[in-house]
């Protein structure tokens, strides 16, 4: 009971360019994502669901965001999502759909949706929102890892040793900062379930 594990590493890639995977069968729309997003993001595209996994393989690490068209010949957006989810990617998924979804897309495993006709503003808005959500999840991961470290130190050292430990003093300060960051970001209502799913997937 109450198993102890301290094997989680902290990965922060705040400085690197975010990557976006686009799976879209409509040639015109697919090509439009380049001029829209190419300046700020590394964009990789696939013209159908079957090609999505190999597009991911070509990327340098997991895509941060994936935009999946809902209705495609071959694998649908939903099936593509399932195929990608099986790979446990550290990715947020948005569904691109012609009609307002009548089903609960969050329960389906999507984090957000975009309705057609897609505009540059709308795409950027969704990406921003999903990235903010990643920031919350990252801050939560980091905060938890630091807490675990702190508790380990507390368990193995005397109060005098802790008072003299620079590492411990630093840990005391860092969580406070992160704590504020978490309070500020918070997961909005839509992000709540997605955040919980992220924790579930990480396990």
């Amino acid at each position: 009971m109450c198993a102890h594990r301290f094997n989680r590493s902290i990965v922060t890639d705040a400085d690197s360019t975010s990557t976006v995977l686009v799976v879209e069968d409509d040639d015109d729309l697919r090509e439009t994502y380049w001029p829209w997003l190419g300046g700020d993001f590394e964009v990789v595209t696939a013209s159908d669901g079957e090609a999505a996994p190999s597009a991911v393989d070509e990327m340098d690490g997991d895509p941060d965001i994936a935009l999946l068209n809902r209705m495609m010949p071959g694998l649908s957006g939903r099936e593509t999502l399932e195929a990608l989810r099986e790979r446990d990617l550290d990715t947020r998924y948005a569904m691109v759909t012609a009609v307002e979804p009548d089903i609960d897309i969050i329960e389906m495993g999507f984090d957000a949706y975009l309705t057609k006709p897609v505009t540059e503003t709308a795409v950027r808005e969704v990406i921003d929102r999903l990235q903010e959500r990643n920031n919350y999840a990252d801050a939560l991961d980091e905060y938890t890892a630091l807490l675990e470290k702190k508790q380990t130190l507390q368990a193995h050292r005397s109060d005098e040793e802790l008072a003299e430990s620079d590492e411990y003093q630093q840990l005391e300060r860092r969580p406070e900062q992160l704590d504020e960051e978490l309070d500020e970001t918070g997961a909005d209502d839509e992000a709540f379930v997605a955040t919980l799913r992220g924790i579930e997937d990480e396990r």
């Binding site: 939560l140 709540f192 919980l196």
Partner: peptide, 18 residues
Amino acid sequence: LERMDHGAVYKFLRTIID
């Protein structure tokens, strides 16, 4: 805690508490 490691339980509770 009987079913998950304490890191995951912390994150779960923290998300609920937020």
